[in-house]
């Protein structure tokens, strides 16, 4: 379910994907000025009015939120981004844990699910779910047990996975505090004017500030 005010929801539809216009798009030459100008200058019959349009069959990268609504109206065709193509899916199936999702797409699952919904590709959403299931325990594992080396594990993770990582890390810290009977100690609010609280690591759910922000 999409939340209108959610920053994550908004930003996950920002990555660009390639779209091809079926029609001559009225007044849209400014989306790709150089590309449109090249096409029109090679076409001798184009009028001055045409030059403001995007030529039919033109391919350009659009943010997903824009490409999505164009595809729904049937005026443009979308290309499946490389990170969701067959090759990438094979890699995920072979060993999902070895794939570095961060370099492929920072909001891999969120964007993937949107695309799967748009093109009605149930196999893509299945592949995403399976990939996440394969990866999630490894992520929790490195957040809790890897100590300082866990930070290195963060590098290949995409956004949702990072959240999972910090949640697991925060829980581990909370558990340790509870074991040492420090749980009812009143901590300094997280983020007091740039001063870091010494007790908590980033993302610890113990202070009210962070737990409240996680609810948002």
């Amino acid at each position: 379910m999409e939340d209108y005010f959610s920053i994550d929801d908004i930003l996950s539809s920002e990555p660009r994907i390639y779209a091809t216009f079926h029609v001559q798009a009225h007044q849209l030459a400014h989306l790709d000025p150089a590309g449109a100008a090249a096409v029109w200058s090679s076409n001798k019959q184009s009028s001055a009015e045409d030059r403001l349009d995007l030529p039919s069959g033109h391919r350009l990268a659009l943010p997903f939120w824009l490409a999505d609504s164009l595809a729904q109206r049937g005026v443009a065709a979308l290309e499946l981004p490389r990170c969701f193509a067959t090759g990438a899916r094979h890699a995920l199936r072979a060993d999902a844990r070895a794939v570095r999702l961060q370099t492929r797409c920072p909001a891999f699952y969120a964007l993937g699910l949107r695309i799967a919904k748009l093109v009605r590709d149930s196999r893509l959403s299945e592949a995403l779910v399976r990939a996440f299931a394969d990866r999630c325990w490894g992520i929790v594992d490195s957040a809790v047990f890897a100590g300082a080396r866990g930070v290195a594990a963060l590098e290949g993770l995409e956004e949702k996975e990072r959240k999972l990582f910090f949640a697991a890390h925060g829980l581990d810290i909370a558990l340790r505090r509870w074991k040492e009977r420090r749980i009812d100690r009143i901590g300094m609010a997280h983020g007091v004017l740039g001063k870091r609280c010494r007790e908590e690591g980033p993302g610890s759910p113990v202070t009210p500030s962070t737990s409240k922000q996680r609810l948002q």
């Binding site: 216009f21 079926h22 029609v23 001559q24 798009a25 009225h26 007044q27 849209l28 989306l31 349009d53 939120w65 824009l66 609504s69 164009l70 109206r73 049937g74 005026v75 443009a76």
Partner: peptide, 17 residues
């Protein structure tokens, strides 16, 4: 006319965005 539809959709969605 899909030609105008695409123009309208792009501008309208951008405003909404």
């Amino acid at each position: 006319d899909p030609r105008y539809i695409s123009g309208v959709v792009v501008f309208y969605r951008s405003v909404q965005r």
